[in-house]
């Protein structure tokens, strides 16, 4: 059974696109045929992070409008032949997406792919709504600061009340917390919320913590998802997250020097 994963947050600039690229690559690398869709119509940048911006011919909106077939628009990744990218249109606005159209494209993708990762735009308006509407699982990307946590909480409310699963009274979307751009030093200085604080406010299953890392910038400059940088802390953190999502037990890392404490708290789940 194919699964639709939305990577969402409410707030912008928290690491949704970075995360979408990394986990889509991670799932594909582990042998699952995966598609990643850029829902940020008008502000596309997933193609840049994936390094396929110079191969874009057709986009998501073309497919929705039936101006191109899905096969024409999907771009095969240069590093992994199980990974495909469906880029956003840069020249349209978010009104070009319709719920019916998005549903149709996702249904078609589900026939051929195991995982479909939807990179949500910021906000809670139409684009973000459509990105989450058909989801089975949600990766809620949150930075350790109050406004990001608040926006994630708001998005969680929307996931649980406005999604297709909610509307049709089906089993709710599985919600996972991804805490990104985490800096133990700044937590210590009291400049950032701790993992514990965020967990306490959101009460959500923690899938993983991604440290603030220079490797993310390097990866996006070179157009390769950071998960392929296996030596980097952020790359390893994303690899852990993919493994946990697939059901493996992995202790949490990159949290802080109270490692033992957090291992007891979150490890082995």
């Amino acid at each position: 059974m194919a699964r639709v994963i939305v990577v969402t947050s409410g707030k912008g600039g928290v690491g949704k696109t970075t995360t979408s690229a990394a986990i889509a690559m991670g799932l594909a690398k582990r042998g699952h045929k995966t598609a990643v869709i850029d829902f940020d119509v008008g502000l596309r940048n997933l193609d840049l992070i994936m390094g396929c911006e110079r191969r874009v011919v057709y986009d998501f909106v073309n497919v929705i409008n039936e101006e191109a077939t899905l096969n024409q628009a999907l771009i095969r990744d240069k590093n992994c032949n199980l990974l495909y990218i469906l880029p956003a249109s840069q020249t349209r606005d978010k009104d070009a997406l319709s719920q019916e159209g998005v549903g149709r494209v996702l249904e078609e993708l589900k026939k051929d792919f195991k995982y479909i990762v939807c990179d949500s735009p910021a906000g809670i308006e139409k684009g973000a709504h459509l990105a989450m509407y058909f989801a089975d699982d949600a990766f809620v990307v949150t930075n350790p600061e109050v406004s990001s946590v608040r926006d994630s909480d708001r998005m969680l409310g929307i996931l649980s009340s406005k999604s297709r699963r909610a509307e049709q009274n089906e089993e709710p979307i599985n919600e996972f917390l991804l805490l990104t751009r985490y800096s133990p030093e700044r937590v210590k200085l009291g400049e950032m919320l701790s993992v514990e604080d965020v967990q306490d406010i959101l009460s959500l299953h923690l899938l993983g913590v991604i440290p603030e890392s220079k490797s993310v910038l390097n990866a996006s400059n070179s157009g390769t998802p950071v998960i392929l940088d296996e030596k980097s802390d952020a790359g390893q953190a994303y690899a852990d997250i993919v493994a946990r999502y697939l059901g493996e037990d992995r202790p949490h890392r990159f949290i802080d020097d109270k490692k033992g404490f957090f291992r007891n708290l979150f490890g082995g789940k």
Binding site: R150, D153, R154, L156, G157, I158, S160, S161, P172, S203
Partner: peptide
């Protein structure tokens, strides 16, 4: 029985 989130 579920959390009541911000905005709800």
């Amino acid at each position: 029985t579920h959390p009541v989130r911000s905005g709800q």
